[in-house]
Computed example of a mutant assay.
Amino acid sequence: MTGSKEDSQDAPPVDLSAEGSEPTKRPGFVYFLGYGIMAPVARLVFRPTITGRDNIPRIGRVILASNHLSFIDSIVIPLVAPRRVQFLAKSTYFTGTGFKGFASRTFFTSIGAVGVERGAGQAAQDALDAGRNILESDSAFAIYPEGTRSLDGRLYKGRTGVAWLALITGAVVVPVGLIGTQEIQPVGAKFPRIRKITVAFGEPLDLSRHGSAESGKARRGATDEIMAAIHALSHQELAGKYNESPPAGTLQKLADRVFPRERV
């Protein structure tokens, strides 16, 4: 499987060697307390239809790669998975002050979130580094290959960071198809609504046959396989492009044309 022109001309991935970095802290007491309370309440209120839970290995390194329709996705996946799952969230959820900051920090810690800075360059490297540390502690890590949530309900092209993580750590990838979560908390809604949803876990994917994590072709092929598996579960319309904001100005548009890059 081959990618687009921008993928075939990608630069080597950034060096995210874990050497010298601190292991990502595993969820502790707050996580287990929050999970014990929230999971049964969520199942009672939203009555999710869950399929394929047995496809998630109970031990070892596993990436849960999901489509992304709503903010609520990052709450749903950890609450219905049969093992502890960690994912990345905006660092601002952990740095607030006062009671509101305490409540936000406690809530996101309780569902297994790890705070990271958003953005490109060093911020993107730090995010992948955090994901790698989670996986190398033999944990489960959830990620959205589209990069950001879909505002129109279509499934967008996957970014290759998920493949790099799988190939560099040896983790298997379990595709996840979420259906209906955008109806619980649409964009702009302040409070969730009660709606039925479906969470489908697909069969684990061993992507090692695609090749080395250093190969752009291997990363693109592995990512396309992951996205095809997600599509088979979510049945979304395919967008056929990346989900990203347009370039900020003329110079950025020109740079994107002259120096096509791999989306990670």
Rank of each mutant, 00 (worst) to 15 (best):
H231D: 02
P27G: 09
G216C: 00
T24E: 14
M227P: 01
L151I: 09
A113V: 07
V162T: 07
T181V: 02
G202Y: 01
N55E: 03
V264H: 08
G177Q: 06
K5S: 11
T223C: 03
L44G: 10
I226V: 10
Q125I: 11
V85F: 01
Q236M: 01
K253N: 13
T198C: 03
F102K: 14
P186F: 00
K253P: 07
R84L: 05
G240K: 12
A255G: 14
R26K: 15
P48Q: 11
G96R: 08
E19T: 14
T169K: 04
V114E: 08
P246R: 14
E117V: 13
A166D: 06
P204E: 06
P40G: 10
I184R: 03
S208I: 02
K157E: 06
R61E: 10
G153A: 05
Q122L: 14
E244W: 09
L251D: 15
R209M: 07
G188L: 09
D152L: 00
A18G: 11
S212G: 05
G211S: 05
I134R: 03
R43T: 04
P27V: 00
A248Y: 12
T223H: 06
T97H: 08
A218W: 07
Q182G: 11
V173W: 00
R84K: 12
G96C: 01
G112V: 00
F46V: 05
R43G: 00
T250K: 15
A248L: 14
L44K: 12
A218Q: 02
R118I: 13
R118M: 09
A213T: 08
T198Q: 09
G98K: 05
I168E: 04
A81P: 08
I50Y: 04
A200L: 01
V116E: 08
A200P: 05
D129G: 13
V174D: 02
L167K: 08
L238S: 04
M227E: 02
A103N: 09
Q86C: 04
V174A: 01
S70F: 01
A11C: 11
P247H: 14
S70P: 04
S139L: 11
I134P: 04
L128T: 06
R47Y: 03
L155Y: 01
G202W: 08
P12Y: 11
S234A: 06
E203L: 12
A127M: 00
R53E: 04
P204V: 04
I72L: 06
R261F: 13
T49V: 12
F29L: 15
V62M: 10
Q86V: 03
S66A: 06
F107G: 10
V80N: 04
S208N: 07
V76G: 00
E262M: 14
V41T: 11
A89P: 08
N67Q: 09
V187C: 00
T106W: 15
